[in-house]
């Protein structure tokens, strides 16, 4: 099912949680709402679900106006960060709840049983049907919550920080599992997260939000490699920020000329060069333009790549991430002065 959000605005007193939001959720996609806390992503999700309502604007479900429908009428599945399982019911009863409370067209006992069994298989909890939520781990609880939401065959699945309460390893497992599940079920899904890694790994498309507004919408590749704003660039992973001025298509960072690979922006006295740590290289000799002298402060080799922290002549800390091969070739030592070279960069005006 397709969802259209049109000119949505939601103030909370003097604070504007959402400001003129326009968004299309495509049928069958897995969309991530990504942003720092307080950016309005959860409010947007709750308004999509009908748990909260906007002051102005419209929400269309497949072209039909759903703006004033409540959560029951919208037939959406909602998964909470803290699971919200019914503690006094077994896993089986939790999943069956939505089918049992149905007033019209309630399935027979046998059909309910079959449907729940099918869902238990889908979330890989067949053996735990008679357990109570208190006897499950966090990851298992969230899978029960998901199965419970899917039981009523919702038109959309909405997930509010679904992996937020889990520890790092379970979180990674579960989000990969969610991706595979979505590939099987193909239900239009929107999930909220503040974890950019999670959004980039799982979602078909990512909506980056900040201060009640949408900064950029795009595939993970688009938002990561072609950020539309300094905020997006900064939020999606670590970034080094150099103050510069731009003159005749060339950027000057403390009088060191930088060649701009992408379309050179207009001249400006104040601009910023954004370079991700992996877009930096370390060299022993000055290598033409885009090369800054800096002294090595820290080297951390424990990881898939080597993290090097350097200090420029003007006292700015720069993070570089290089391969182990490169590390072996350059052999940076703490205290040594080396040269930072940028391979790629992104320039935004101040």
């Amino acid at each position: 099912m397709k969802i259209s959000v049109q000119n949505l605005t939601k103030p909370f007193g003097a604070f504007t949680a959402l400001n003129d939001i326009n968004l299309e959720v495509r049928s069958g996609e897995l969309l991530a709402l990504l942003g720092p806390s307080g950016c309005g992503k959860t409010t947007l999700l709750r308004i999509l679900s009908g748990l909260e309502f906007a002051d102005t604007g419209h929400i269309l479900f497949d072209g039909e106006d759903a703006t004033t429908q409540n959560v029951r009428a919208r037939k959406v599945g909602f998964v909470f960060q803290h699971y919200a399982l019914f503690r006094h019911m077994t896993v089986f009863e939790n999943i069956a709840f939505g089918l049992r409370v149905r007033r019209t067209g309630r399935p027979s006992r046998r059909d309910i049983h079959a449907r729940v069994e099918e869902l238990l298989k889908l979330v890989k909890l067949e053996t735990l049907a008679s357990r109570f939520p208190s006897q499950l781990s966090g990851g298992q609880r969230q899978r029960v919550a998901l199965a419970r939401a899917l039981a009523v065959e919702p038109r959309v699945l909405l997930l509010d920080e679904p992996f937020g309460a889990l520890d790092a390893k379970v979180r990674q497992e579960l989000r990969r599992w969610l991706r595979r599940l979505h590939d099987e079920v193909h239900i239009t899904s929107v999930f909220v997260t503040h974890d950019q890694e999670e959004a980039l790994e799982v979602a078909d498309r990512v909506v980056v939000m900040n201060k009640g507004q949408i900064e950029q919408v795009g595939t993970p590749e688009e938002v990561y490699h072609h950020p539309a704003s300094p905020f997006v660039c900064d939020f999606l992973g670590n970034v080094n920020l150099f103050e510069c001025r731009i003159h005749y298509g060339q950027a000057y960072v403390h009088d060191v000329p930088f060649e701009l690979h992408n379309a050179p922006p207009q001249d400006a006295q104040h601009a910023y060069v954004y370079v991700r740590p992996h877009q930096l290289d370390i060299q022993r000799e000055l290598g033409g333009p885009n090369s800054l002298p800096a002294s090595v402060r820290l080297v951390n080799t424990a990881g898939a790549q080597v993290d090097v922290e350097l200090l420029t002549e003007w006292g700015q800390i720069v993070h570089a991430r290089i391969s182990h091969d490169r590390h072996r070739a350059v052999r940076p030592q703490v205290g040594q002065t080396l040269f930072i070279a940028t391979k790629e960069m992104k320039v935004f005006h101040a």
């Binding site: 959560v71 909602f78 909470f80 919200a84 919550a145």
Partner: peptide
């Protein structure tokens, strides 16, 4: 009792 419990029940179609 978390308000989420009542909200989730409503989203599952309970009156």
């Amino acid at each position: 009792i978390e308000p989420e419990l009542e909200q989730v029940a409503a989203s599952l179609g309970a009156n």
